[in-house]
Simulated scan of single mutants.
Amino acid sequence: MLRPDYPIRTERLTLRPFAAGDLDDLHALTGDPQVVRYLYWEVHTPEETREALARRMGQDALTEEGQWLVLAMDLDGRVIGQVVLKWASRVHRQGELGFVLNPAFHGRGYAREAAEAMLRLAFEGLGLHRVYGACDTRNEGSWRLLERLGMRREAHFVEDELFKGEFGDQYIYAVLAREWRARQAISSR
Rank of each mutant, 00 (worst) to 15 (best):
W68T: 03
W68Y: 05
W68Q: 06
L69Q: 10
L69M: 11
V70D: 15
V70Y: 01
L71T: 09
A72Q: 09
M73S: 12
M73N: 12
L75Q: 12
D76H: 10
D76P: 00
D76A: 10
G77W: 07
G77H: 13
G77Q: 12
R78G: 04
G81N: 14
G81I: 07
Q82V: 00
V84P: 00
V84H: 03
L85T: 01
L85I: 03
K86Y: 00
A88L: 02
R90D: 11
R90V: 01
R90F: 02
V91T: 10
V91K: 10
V91H: 02
R93V: 00
Q94T: 02
G95F: 00
E96R: 07
E96H: 08
E96G: 07
E96C: 03
L97I: 04
L97F: 02
G98W: 05
F99W: 14
L101G: 15
N102V: 01
P103I: 05
A104G: 09
H106C: 04
G107S: 07
R108N: 15
G109I: 02
R112S: 14
E113F: 02
A114D: 12
A114V: 06
E116N: 11
A117T: 08
M118Q: 13
L119H: 12
L119Y: 11
L121H: 08
L121A: 03
A122E: 14
F123R: 05
G125L: 03
L126G: 05
G127M: 06
G127H: 11
L128V: 04
H129V: 01
R130C: 07
R130D: 08
Y132N: 09
G133D: 04
G133I: 00
A134P: 02
C135M: 07
D136P: 03
D136G: 11
R138T: 03
E140Q: 13
E140T: 15
E140H: 11
S142T: 09
W143F: 13
L145F: 01
E147S: 15
R148S: 13
R148H: 15
L149S: 14
L149Q: 14
G150W: 09
G150P: 06
